[in-house]
């Protein structure tokens, strides 16, 4: 039976973005309904042509950077969107603060979304925060 999985990404570090992307891609590809809400320090990495240099928290982040076989988190989020119809939603408040438009974001990202809407959609589902 498919479940609803809602993921909130607020931290701009490689480990947290990678783990969130892993959950999103596997759940979406397995038939779960997935939505990911990007805000705070996580959102700037989804601006078009943004840097691939993401701060690491510790040794594991360094290990992932050294291993070429680790799928990049942006690719995993893209898989989640393309293979499993995951919704990738930018936080409208974060866009306002960063002074960027929806068009400046990667094409996989959906419409700017407010907290009320996200919470309403997330009601009754599983919620993970990174």
């Amino acid at each position: 039976m498919s479940q609803h999985l809602h993921i909130i990404c607020v931290t701009g570090t490689r480990e947290k973005l990678q783990m969130a992307a892993m959950f999103a891609s596997v759940a979406a590809a397995t038939g779960d309904q997935v939505s990911v809400f990007f805000s705070m320090n996580a959102l700037p990495f989804f601006v078009k042509d943004s840097t691939d240099e993401v701060p690491v928290e510790g040794r594991f982040g360094e290990l992932m950077e050294q291993e070429v076989g680790v799928p990049p988190f942006k690719q995993l989020f893209k898989h989640a969107s393309e293979l499993g119809d995951a919704k990738l939603l930018p936080c409208s408040m974060a866009l306002d603060l960063l002074k960027i438009s929806e068009e400046a974001l990667d094409p996989e990202l959906g419409p700017p979304t407010g907290l009320t809407r996200f919470l309403s959609d997330a009601e009754g589902g599983q919620l993970l925060t990174f």
Binding site: M22, S25, V26, A29, E67, V68, G69, V70, P71, L76, H79, L83
Partner: peptide, 17 residues
């Protein structure tokens, strides 16, 4: 080979589609 989780599963799912 030589790719890490969930890379192989994603590859399989892509081809399965």
């Amino acid at each position: 080979r030589d790719t890490f989780c969930p890379g192989p599963l994603m590859e399989l799912i892509t081809y399965m589609k």
